[in-house]
């Protein structure tokens, strides 16, 4: 994919210098993602573990407003499992007959509830910074999943002489290097059901894979359709070339 996009950039003779703007600090390390490349597919195990990390760690501060519980079928969950996951959330509904709003357990068509009622509340609880909704974060940041992984694993001691204010944290990959998000992951922050050791690295990879899916749930369908379309177009164009040669043969 990287090669393709570089090809496209050369083809169309320019591309915003996005990559260069990514991190003003260190260069982002590139990971091997199950879903990169034209044949790439999301690793179901990583997605499920990533969902767990999101639910147990990130969801306290970050919403996922474009994802409905029913969408989790794509992670390999069955209907009953999805119902059970949804039911663990309480969703505001209403108004009822008396005109009151009320809370009820979630159902598959509901979306993940956001942790704060509005940006003001979110900022008030997070040292003045609003934790962004994560549904689209992988598409919304240069570097994509590499960036999310880098951010989560990029906390470090600030360089000599750099004053870090109370409630702020030094991060190698966050633009400007100082972020209001405290390091959310630590060794064994979650206990994986499948026995995978929950290292910070593993959790960061898993949650980034999960968020790559939330950003582009259509990716697998898109790529497989793309391979079919490309094969067809190549043959079709080849045939057209042969026809063109034949038609023009009497002119040359």
């Amino acid at each position: 994919m990287k090669k393709l996009s570089i090809g496209a950039a050369v083809l169309l003779f320019s591309l915003p210098a996005g990559a260069a703007l990514a991190a003003e600090g260190k260069e982002l390390p590139e990971r091997d993602w199950s879903f990169s490349g034209i044949f790439g597919q999301f690793d179901r195990g990583a997605m499920q573990r990533g969902l767990q990390v999101y639910r147990e760690v990130c969801s306290g501060c970050h919403g996922l407003r474009f994802i409905a519980f029913r969408n989790l079928g794509a992670l390999g969950y069955g209907e009953d499992e999805i119902k059970a996951i949804a039911a663990e959330y309480s969703i505001e509904d209403g108004p009822n007959e008396e005109g009151e709003m009320f809370e009820r357990p979630g159902r598959p068509p509901d979306r993940f509830p956001s942790p704060f009622p509005n940006d003001k509340a979110a900022a008030a609880n997070n040292n003045g910074a609003v934790p962004p909704d994560l549904s689209l974060i992988v598409k919304a940041r240069t570097g994509g999943a590499d960036y999310v992984h880098g951010l989560l694993t990029g906390y470090a001691e600030p360089p000599e002489g750099l004053e870090i204010l109370e409630g702020q944290n030094y991060n190698l990959y966050f633009p400007g290097n100082v972020t209001a998000m405290a390091p959310p992951l630590f060794e064994d922050a979650v206990e994986y059901g499948d026995g995978t050791p929950a290292t910070v690295e593993r959790m960061a990879m898993d949650v980034a894979t999960f968020l790559a899916w939330t950003a582009e749930p259509e990716m697998e369908e898109r790529k497989s359709m793309g391979i079919g379309v490309m094969l067809f177009l190549l043959v079709f164009t080849g045939v057209l070339y042969a026809v063109k040669r034949k038609v023009w043969a009497d002119l040359h």
Binding site: S5, L15, I38, V229, T237, V243
Partner: peptide, 26 residues
């Protein structure tokens, strides 16, 4: 028609495999 074929190959390559490569993430 042949030119269209070549164009569609390039277009499909971006469309299906790097649809956001030409846009701004933000």
């Amino acid at each position: 028609a042949f030119g269209l074929g070549v164009f569609l190959v390039l277009f499909a390559a971006i469309l299906f495999f790097a649809p956001n490569a030409l846009g701004e993430p933000i």
